[in-house]
Simulated assay, not measured.
Amino acid sequence: MQEFAVQTSRLRQWVRQHGEGTAVLFIHGNASDSVYWEEVMLALPEGYRAIAPDLRGYGQTEDVLIDATRGVMDWVDDLLALLKELNVDRYHVVGHSLGGAVIWGLLAADAPRILSVTLAAPGSPFGFGGTRDAEGNPTTPDFAGSGGGTVNPDFPARIARQDTSDEGGSPRDIMNRFYWKPPFRAAREDALLEGLLREKTGPDRYPGDFVASENWPGMAPGIHGPINAISAKYVGDTVQRLLAQTHKPPVLWIRGDSDQIVSDQSLFELGTLGLLGAVPGYPGQDAYPPQPMVSQTRHVLEAYGPFKEVVFQDVGHTPYIEKPDEFMAEFVAHLKSTQLETSPAQS
């Protein structure tokens, strides 16, 4: 595994890389970094060049602010600049969670160069929070209940002080309760925890800022940080643009049946928490239903075209770590189904 920094036209980005051949771009999720993809990268067969950057705001990449008003496009533009520096033309792309949300924007911006897409428990194409139905219609005009104000402030505070304990609510505890389905524990738990703890925190970073709202639960998205960037408020016309593409690379969508982070009743989404009585003043399911994240992804992919949905049983939010052999079988078959017609030197 190679690790190095790449200075692009936008920022200094940290990259993990392994192998030679057709490029495969790996995009990590929130509260993690590229270390989460190492085992998958190493397990790829010969003929593939695995590239996994730390996104802006994460890992060892230069600490540059995220303009959330652009949605995921700061990350998309960073990735396109990185691919240019690495002399990558056509490529496969893989994204987990927030990384899957980034892929929706990447597809809208760069579909003709993408050979295939693999989504592992991806964020909804309509963003995280603030929408009420499979079509992504907003729950309130200001998208209240999404963005930086929805994050329990104790979690980024524990990241900031590099808490490695196993106490309730600690990063290690959250990782082991929600990233995968208990009682599963990752073999490289400490390395993965270190990757989580490398996220940049603060009001302008993770979780980001927020503004007061007249609508329940009393806060709406701000303009900085990753959680605002994935708010439905800033999705814009991303879905329309990706559906309008004439070249539509095939999509493999893998998720766990026990995912508590991205689901139709996510325990990290205010509609679900309100319905469970965990947030005061809940106005009721008619006014603020849980966001149907999985249904939204399926709705968009059915309109998009070529996709395959695979559901792993007894798996939480990170199927490629929880069931690596099953994931690799599906993933490699998907990669090989789209053969690049150029030489490795041109890829």
Rank of each mutant, 00 (worst) to 15 (best):
W216S: 03
P283A: 02
G99K: 01
V24N: 02
R205M: 12
E341Q: 13
Q296V: 10
P280T: 06
G149E: 10
K233C: 13
P250F: 05
E46Y: 14
G208E: 08
G271D: 08
E269D: 14
V76H: 06
P292G: 06
P289Q: 04
P153W: 06
F26N: 02
H317N: 00
N30H: 13
G202K: 08
D190S: 02
S124L: 11
I27F: 04
A244N: 04
S347D: 10
K336A: 14
G136A: 12
G222H: 05
S213T: 01
T118V: 11
Y304D: 05
H334V: 10
D154L: 13
P280K: 04
S34I: 11
Y91D: 00
F210T: 09
T246A: 12
D163S: 00
T297H: 15
I51M: 09
A68W: 09
L192T: 04
S165E: 00
D190P: 02
V332Y: 04
S231T: 05
L270K: 13
N176D: 07
K181A: 14
A81V: 09
L301K: 05
V300K: 08
V294H: 15
I114K: 01
D325K: 12
H317M: 00
E322H: 03
T118P: 07
F128Q: 12
G147R: 04
P125L: 08
Q260H: 13
V279E: 11
V239A: 09
P45M: 05
P156G: 09
G147F: 04
R185V: 09
V35W: 05
S347Q: 09
Q285R: 15
I230P: 09
L301Y: 08
A81G: 09
A345T: 10
F327Y: 07
A220L: 03
V93R: 00
H224Q: 14
E39G: 14
A134I: 12
